[in-house]
């Protein structure tokens, strides 16, 4: 038993040393990587200073071209959409970090049904933001909810688990090329969706997520930031309004809701899309951004008058 205790103690001590030292290396990697989302998260957490910040997941990242929107509304715009961070917990973490150093005039959130419906992996996407654990108590509260708080506290290596490989690869391969203030065009593809979605599974509403939607709105209002909700096009014809719940929230909070989903935009040709929920490429993103920018300008004008 004595031998086992010595072995155990040795392993714990060396593991602690490796965890902390490699953790430091991974922090450096995280700050210098040219991966797709790493530099964007770093910018959002530390440096974003634009008047309008677009927030959301991949649909936000690849549908909104800031330069087009900026030209139309006459203010600086940053596309803060982070691939795969597709629910309100991730957006709340990002917003919490932003608000510590900058109060944008507007936050425009691209909402998805995963922002308010129940799902098995609700907290999976919060792991992308774990490298910034410990620097913002409000953001860390989401990790408490996710049950990862203690693990992040114990292991520094574990904080980098979700993005370790892509961050390291991002030191060698620059995936930030062609960027436009946060917008990074997806690579061209010959794929397009072969079926038009006519109905989708209706899931139960997640009351905790809805609470975080409200916390998101409250945090913006508390900092003098106005909120806009938007839904960009999908390759689907809806047989019901999947966003009715979030629209009610928007109505209750006096938030404009820009809905391009139920309008059936771009549905005339499947080749406008790369899959059922993403527009095909930069060209289709630009076409959509022109429409969005035009409508957004009117919303802001109405608002300000």
């Amino acid at each position: 038993m004595k031998k086992f205790v010595i072995s155990f103690a040795f392993i714990i001590v060396i593991l602690f040393a490796v965890d902390r030292s490699v953790g430091r290396v991974m922090w450096w990697v995280n700050q210098h990587t040219n991966d797709v989302s790493g530099p964007k998260i770093k910018y959002l957490v530390n440096d974003v200073d634009e008047d309008m910040v677009l927030m959301g997941a991949s649909r936000c990242n690849c549908h909104y071209v800031p330069s087009i929107i900026s030209d139309s509304i006459g203010m600086s715009v940053y596309n803060g959409g982070v691939d795969a961070s597709n629910n309100i917990y991730a957006h709340y973490i990002v917003l919490s970090h932003i608000m510590t150093h900058h109060k944008p005039r507007y936050v425009c959130l691209e909402v998805m049904t995963s922002d308010f419906e129940k799902s098995d992996d609700s907290f999976m996407t919060t792991t992308f933001f774990a490298p910034y654990f410990g620097i913002n108590e409000r953001a860390d509260s989401v990790f408490r909810l996710a049950g990862t708080y203690t693990m992040y506290k114990v292991s520094h290596l574990y904080r980098y688990n979700a993005k370790s490989l892509s961050n390291i690869l991002g030191l060698v391969v620059n995936r930030q090329q062609g960027g436009d203030n946060g917008y990074i065009p997806y690579p061209r593809t010959d794929n397009y969706p072969d079926t038009l979605i006519k109905s989708a599974t209706v899931r139960d509403i997640d009351s905790t997520k809805l609470r975080y939607v409200q916390k998101f709105i409250d945090l913006c209002y508390a900092n003098g930031t106005k909120v806009i909700f938007t839904v960009s096009p999908s390759y689907s014809i809806v047989d019901r309004d999947y966003y009715d719940v979030i629209k009610e929230v928007a109505l209750h909070n006096d938030i404009p809701f820009m809905d391009y989903h139920t309008h059936g935009l771009f549905l005339e040709d499947a080749e406008n899309f790369r899959d059922q929920i993403h527009l095909r490429d930069e060209e289709s993103a630009r076409r959509f951004s022109v429409i969005f920018a035009h409508d957004l300008k009117q919303v802001l004008e109405r608002w300000n008058n």
Binding site: F10, I11, L15
Partner: peptide
């Protein structure tokens, strides 16, 4: 013993 440490670290990270 170092093997054990490195395997745990590898799993935690990757």
């Amino acid at each position: 013993h170092l093997y054990i440490v490195l395997m745990i670290a590898y799993i935690l990270l990757f």
